[in-house]
Computed example of a mutant assay.
Amino acid sequence: MSKEIEKTASGHQSPFERIKRINDAGMEYWSSRDFAEVLGYDNYRNFDGVIEKAKLSCFNSGNRIENHFVDVDEMVIIGSGAERPIKTTLMSRYACYLAIQNADPKKEIVAHGQTYFAIQTRRQELTDGRIEEERRLLLREEMRQHNVQLMSAAKLAGVIEPKDYAIFQNHGYMGLYGGLKRDDIHQRKGLKKSQKILDHMGSTELAANLFRATQAEEKLRRDDVKGRDAANLTHHQVGAKVRKTIQELGGTMPEDLPTVESIKKIETKKRKQIGTNSIPEKVEAKK
């Protein structure tokens, strides 16, 4: 096994990269059987304890175990040529990182694996972070536009005064957030009075609210809803429908999703990047 480590150090592919698998959706994963073999566990039962500790670490870190560890039965060929099922756990890159942290530290390959998965997991986190930022920017802008359209539809229904529109908005929030009004959500998320709820939502929560806003607007117009009470009821019903869909899909309720940094910071960072990237073009133009 030390030879494999030497090869990796000299630029060859890591043994952990060689056992990586890709599913039909293009997602990477590792088999616990392959993983145990690379780590030098001759008896797979000894590696079962490592997997269980890794699952506990996953849970304690606030992540869903089923998102990173999937227990399956794999068919293998035995000496007679027949097949029999064996217990296997399919693991994400993060799951591998947790497993390697709980493996036998006396094994030389474990130290190599800890370094490999720490680096790769951090790279993935950075990539995922950039994708999440782009999603938030897109969805937040969509929310701005559709809130204007929702306000227009509500106005046609008879929601005219600003205080009435605030009540109308609260009905949508109450439907989606299980009875919580805007101020309740604000308090639950730990936000200051000057901070806007939508600016501190992750992409999942923004998407749920965007669906609420677009569907409420369409229903108000399609059903030609008239009257403030009818508009409020419509908005509440739409929000409740979106909430029920999230429940049926096994998703996290919006009020339980984490509060994230203000999107204003991401917008500022984006503007700076655009400004930095445009400098060479201005210099070139002067030439």
Rank of each mutant, 00 (worst) to 15 (best):
A95V: 12
A36N: 04
F59L: 10
I65M: 05
E52A: 01
M174P: 00
H236T: 00
V148T: 13
V260G: 11
K241H: 02
Y44V: 03
G175K: 01
S80G: 09
A166T: 11
V159S: 09
M174D: 00
L39I: 00
E267W: 10
V225L: 03
V148M: 08
G113W: 01
T127Q: 15
I185M: 10
K244H: 10
R212I: 01
T88W: 06
P105H: 08
E217Y: 14
G202V: 04
M1T: 14
I51L: 09
K87Y: 00
L257C: 05
C96D: 08
Y44S: 03
S57T: 09
A153K: 05
L191C: 08
G202D: 14
R64W: 07
V38S: 01
K270Q: 15
S10E: 13
K226Y: 04
F47I: 05
K106D: 09
I65Q: 04
I197R: 03
S2A: 12
R21P: 02
H236S: 02
M27E: 13
D256H: 01
I109N: 02
M151F: 06
A231P: 07
E52S: 01
D73Y: 14
V70A: 07
H68E: 14
T115P: 03
I100L: 10
F47M: 07
F35N: 05
T8Y: 14
K53F: 00
G250P: 07
D183K: 15
E74Y: 10
A154F: 13
A54P: 12
E132K: 15
T259N: 11
A54F: 12
N46W: 11
T268L: 13
S14K: 06
R93I: 10
E125V: 02
T204I: 15
L210V: 00
D73L: 10
Y29D: 06
D71Y: 12
K55R: 07
Q247D: 12
M143E: 11
L249G: 08
G227H: 13
N60D: 13
V238R: 03
A25G: 08
V148R: 12
E66S: 09
G158R: 11
A240W: 00
L233M: 11
R182Q: 06
P162N: 13
H236R: 06
K189P: 02
H171I: 00
Y97P: 06
V38P: 09
R33T: 08
G129F: 07
N60W: 09
L191Q: 03
P254S: 00
D184C: 01
N60G: 08
T127P: 09
V242E: 03
C58F: 03
P15G: 06
R33M: 06
H112D: 12
A240I: 02
V72R: 11
I274D: 13
